[in-house]
Write a protein that binds this DNA or RNA. Structure first.
Lengths: 110, 110
DNA sequence: TCTATAGTTCAATATTACAGAACAATTGAA
DNA sequence: TTCAATTGTTCTGTAATATTGAACTATAGA
C-alpha cells in the first residue's frame, strides 16, 4: 500500500507552489480539480494528453508535495482534492489572483 | 556589443513569468528591483549571494526573457528595470498579489 | 596603453524531467 | 478462488536544464 507525502499547511512554501504551477500540464490539472466539486481521479483530471502515465504520476507527486492537492487511495484509483483552504490560509489571495489569469491563458490552444 | 532579447508585452506568458519567479534567487532579484525606484545593476540587485556570476547572468537572462525585467547596457554595467506596467497589462493583479506574499516569505532566513 | 570592472559565453558536470517497462493493489467476472 | 482488466507507482535509462570555473568582450579611468 502506497502512502503519500503531504506537507503540513505551515510547511507549504511559495517557491514550491509557484514551481508546481509553473508548468502548463500541472496548472491545467490543478484548474480541473478546482473547477470540479469534490475529487477526481488522476485520469479524470488529466484526460486526453499524450503524456505517459509515469510522467503524469510524477506531476501529481509534484502537486502533492507542494501542498496543492491531497491524494487518497480509494479502491483501485486515487482521489485527488485541491487543498484550496490550506493554500488560502498560507498565501491569502494567491489562488484568487492566479486562477482567473490561468483560465484566460489556457482557454484556447491549451 | 551584446544585444538583449526582450519579449513584446503580448508575448509574455504566464508560464514563463511563474517559472521565472519560482526560484528564490530570481524572486529576490525581482523584489529588489521593484522595491527600488529607477534601475539597478546586476551586482546591486543580487548582492552578497555566494552565487557565481555566470549563474547570476543566467538568472537575469531568465527574468529578461520572461518579460519581467528590461536590461540596458549603460557603460560598463547593465541597468535593469522591472517591467511592472507590462506585467500588469498582461496579467492584472498578479504582481499585487504575489509580491507581498513573497516579501513575507523571504523576510527572514532568505 | 594598461589595469580594473561588469557581465557574457563556453565547456564540463550535476541535477531534474520524461518515457517505457515492470510491478503492486484492487475490482469484477468466471 | 483464479484470472483478466484497471489504475497508478516505481525503476532505469536518456534527454533536458542548472550550475560553475575559465576565457572572453566591452567600457571606464588613470
Amino acid at each position: 500500500m502506497v502512502q503519500f507525502v503531504h506537507p503540513a499547511t505551515e510547511d507549504i512554501t511559495l517557491n514550491g507552489v509557484l514551481a508546481a504551477l509553473a508548468d502548463p500540464v500541472r496548472m491545467k490539472i490543478f484548474m480541473s480539480l478546482m473547477a470540479q466539486e469534490g475529487c477526481m481521479s488522476c485520469t479524470e483530471a488529466a484526460p486526453d494528453t499524450g503524456i505517459a502515465k509515469s510522467t503524469l504520476s510524477h506531476h501529481f507527486r509534484i502537486l502533492r508535495e507542494a501542498g496543492l492537492i491531497r491524494t487518497l487511495k480509494r479502491g483501485v484509483e486515487n482521489r485527488n482534492v485541491p487543498r484550496a483552504d490550506d493554500i488560502d490560509a498560507r498565501f491569502p489571495g494567491l489562488l484568487r489572483a492566479l486562477l482567473p489569469l490561468a483560465a484566460h491563458e489556457y482557454r484556447r490552444a491549451g
